[in-house]
């Protein structure tokens, strides 16, 4: 028989449908956004969309700044709460798998439902909706994404490292700062990425928990696409800015955890 270039059903072929899916629903839309960012309403080339966004006459940059700040604050609080929690969970991992379950359980409930019920609780307690409640909601929602990677890294730290540093005369504090924290750095980085990126792009949480009073970058993008018909260009520029931010975050994460076991989960 002659050798023909024939379609052979290999294991690789199982991935083709998803590749096709990615191409149609991820790559193509991204290209469309990119093209839209350079178009006016009547489809001619322009750079005005960028000028309009970066000149900040509509507060677009301010909104971005606010979102970034809120993202940073959320991430810092998540880290501050999440690290000790992950540490103890890892410490008592063997005896207490149920505890870990408790921290994952909120993720089983749809996040919109969680947020709506958080709102109901705040209102029942007569707490005024605003920045405080939004931050609470953010931390509440993204905390598991911080704890999980930290937990995974901390559990996988070889206990002999700790013993070794103790043998070499390190006290408990030094063991913490010189051994455990550096070894868990990949987990910290991936936890930060997994918290920070959704936190800067969220809009549902801020909408629900502040009754739309707090307006974040996600809201602004949403407004440019769904509330008007002729500012797709600026909306696309904003989406691109967001995309660049995400890429930057990922590059930084991957750089820090280059030789480590855990890479960015994103």
């Amino acid at each position: 028989m002659k050798a023909k270039s024939k379609f052979r059903f290999t294991r690789k072929a199982l991935a083709y449908p998803y590749m096709l899916f990615l191409l149609i629903f991820v790559v193509v839309p991204l290209v469309i956004i990119l093209i839209n960012a350079f178009l006016t309403d009547d489809n001619s080339f322009t750079l005005n969309n960028f000028v309009e966004f970066f000149s900040d006459n509509g507060g677009g940059l301010t909104v971005l700044g606010n979102s970034l700040l809120i993202g940073v604050v959320t991430t810092v609080i998540c880290l501050a709460i999440g690290y000790p929690v992950a540490y103890f969970l890892a410490k008592y991992h063997a005896s207490n798998k149920v505890l870990v379950l408790f921290f994952i359980m909120p993720m089983w409930v749809n996040f919109l439902m969680r947020t709506l019920s958080t709102k109901a609780i705040f209102l029942a307690l007569d707490v005024e909706l605003g920045m405080g409640t939004v931050l609470f909601g953010m931390v509440y929602n993204y905390l598991p994404y911080m704890i999980l990677p930290l937990h995974t890294t901390l559990v996988s730290i070889d206990h002999s490292f700790i013993e070794a540093s103790e043998d070499l005369g390190a006290d408990k504090f030094t063991v913490m700062t010189k051994t455990i924290i550096p070894l868990s750095l990949p987990g910290i980085m991936s936890g930060i990425t997994m918290t920070f990126i959704p936190a800067i792009s969220t809009f549902a949480i801020s909408e629900v928990l502040s009754s739309s009073k707090i307006f974040l970058f996600g809201d602004a993008i949403n407004m440019h696409f769904s509330k008007t018909t002729n500012s797709f260009g600026v909306g696309s520029v904003m989406s691109l800015v967001m995309l660049v931010l995400v890429i930057v975050c990922n590059v930084i994460t991957n750089m820090t955890s280059k030789d480590e076991g855990v890479k960015s989960a994103l």
Binding site: N66, V73, F215, T228
Partner: peptide
């Protein structure tokens, strides 16, 4: 739209955010 965007984003200014940062650092 620009006006509306401005109105909606107004009120979230740097000062209370700074206080939150201080609080966050304090928590850490």
């Amino acid at each position: 739209v620009t006006m509306w965007n401005y109105v909606r984003s107004a009120g979230v200014n740097a000062l209370p955010m700074f206080l939150w940062m201080v609080l966050a650092v304090a928590v850490v």
